[in-house]
Design a binder for these strands. Sequence first.
DNA 1: TGAAAATATTAAACCGGTTTTGCAATATGG
DNA 2: CCATATTGCAAAACCGGTTTAATATTTTCA
Lengths: 333, 333
Amino acid sequence: MAGVSKGTVSNVFTQKRAVRKEVVDRVLRAAHELNFKPNYWARTLSMKETRIIGLSMQAEQTKFSQFHLSLINGVLQVCYDQGYRLLINTRAADHKRDLRHSTTDPVDGEILLDPQENDERFIRRTETSPPAVVVGRPPEALGTQFCYVDNDSVASAKKATQFLIDLGHRHILFLNTPKERTVSEDRRRGYESAIHQAGYEIHPELHIYERLNTHSLEYGQTTTREMLAQGRTFSAIIAGSDKIALGVYQAAMEMRVSIPGQLSVFAFENDTVFTSEFCPPLTGITLNAERIGSEAASLLIERLRNPSTPTVYRLIPTEIIIRESCRIWNARN
Amino acid sequence: MAGVSKGTVSNVFTQKRAVRKEVVDRVLRAAHELNFKPNYWARTLSMKETRIIGLSMQAEQTKFSQFHLSLINGVLQVCYDQGYRLLINTRAADHKRDLRHSTTDPVDGEILLDPQENDERFIRRTETSPPAVVVGRPPEALGTQFCYVDNDSVASAKKATQFLIDLGHRHILFLNTPKERTVSEDRRRGYESAIHQAGYEIHPELHIYERLNTHSLEYGQTTTREMLAQGRTFSAIIAGSDKIALGVYQAAMEMRVSIPGQLSVFAFENDTVFTSEFCPPLTGITLNAERIGSEAASLLIERLRNPSTPTVYRLIPTEIIIRESCRIWNARN
DNA sequence: TGAAAATATTAAACCGGTTTTGCAATATGG
DNA sequence: CCATATTGCAAAACCGGTTTAATATTTTCA
């Protein structure tokens, strides 16, 4: 319609080669009239770039948590600024399906969430897979092969435990997240390190892992209830998430144990709005999920632009937020 | 490598035409050896189907709320079951950029969030745009052209107001969400309808819209503070969201107004976990966001399969959840 | 003025699949 | 046993762009 060839139209749209102003006008006018837009897929096919980054959840998992929400918001901000789109990968893992049903991924790069030990996403990854950045620490064995962004979980847990020890607590119950998540093990290390450093004994029965596929709130509630019913000695609880802490609160209410009078509660916080509304407001440590998300996205996009950048990782600092659920503990309590 | 033609390999992978078992084996063995997978975008180009659905946010907006989170979880569940992926559209609107930078969308269909009156996404939509389903009510003028999934906002607001009227409240302050959102206007109608039906007078000064781009919590807090300071008469507040309600709580605490003793608070709830932890626990109406998400996704996928399905909309019911923030009001209070 | 350089355009090749067409090999059946 | 279906595969066209190589036009400058 504009009386020019395919290639010229391409040049008008991509602006990679000069086109005479008059011709540009003619082409754009025709494009507007025909409501023409370059086909995304055809362009992708020849450019070999989608400008889409993927967010890969754990296999079989389809629900985002509050932590994920903040993280996604961080990722989105960077995507928006850099002109990328975000694809949530909900497809079942390839190997579960027939090889015949698998295809390449429609993304330039991926952010991998919630790494686990023996995580198939890492094992299946080949040199042709798109570049990836992990949120959280990748499995031990592959530690050095992946870029990752994480909190310094060991240090965070140590700092948290230290905080309670400084308040006078000696028996601290740790309701940890599932063992399969790499972060859980890190936090256990930090927790034990702080106790050890204070010269106290480590009581293995005071450290409990959540089981996969359970409701966190219920886990916090029933475990706390059981531990209290059994008459275990502990004056403080560290909850692996705010939802777990909520369960602790409910169990404490049931059992008429006052917080923080008889029990201090401390949590790794995923959602700051939420936690400030606990009754009493929950003391804990924020994970800066949004910042983790934006760092992960920046790191990934940087690698896409320059694939030769070395494997790096970034640790996002955590901060203790003191509210009202922890109190000084004296021997006489 | 398998000694067969391109077309045969295609048939092995798509299974659209019969291929001899022996040849299938040879091809698959070779594919495995070469780590070959069909290219997603090449396939898309010739099939004209991406099996990706898009989630379109308001222009310029890059943050999801708690309500969105639940909604997305509902969408993801359906996507997972149906073999679709979800793309979050964070690109700036086409028309803001040069026409030269626009392309077709890389999705089969779209879910449009947070419709507003004069929403450019609707105006720009042409017959070549992918099918769309709206979450919330589309702009008045286009009402019949789009499938949408929504709460029955008029009925919800009426039910909520009726609930407070039944408790004896006559002056109910409504802290509504921004006027630009179609839902706000619907709720105002329901609110006024209930008041009118009860035979009470409508006080326009007791209905306030949030301004766009403000913090909801702050809006709730400052507005409540001002209204109380001005000595306005009202015994109950309906908050357009739980975050607004949180602001109301904070203002009430500042001004030493007890909830629910001196003031009943009722909210449209986006997050059920959150609201049960208000102090006192918040009474309100749940929007069933997750269900809205899954219905929207199902509806969209249904339309993709069969484009001739008529334009329909689905109203998701809401339920009042009675907790402790609302109390009977007598004239003598 | 004419040769060299710079600029603008086109035709053709290509990206990596799917789909159509046509032909050979095998199966069916009267 | 031969005509007719049916099945299985290769060759070629196609999806809608980008990119390269070749060509035509204009500009620069000796």
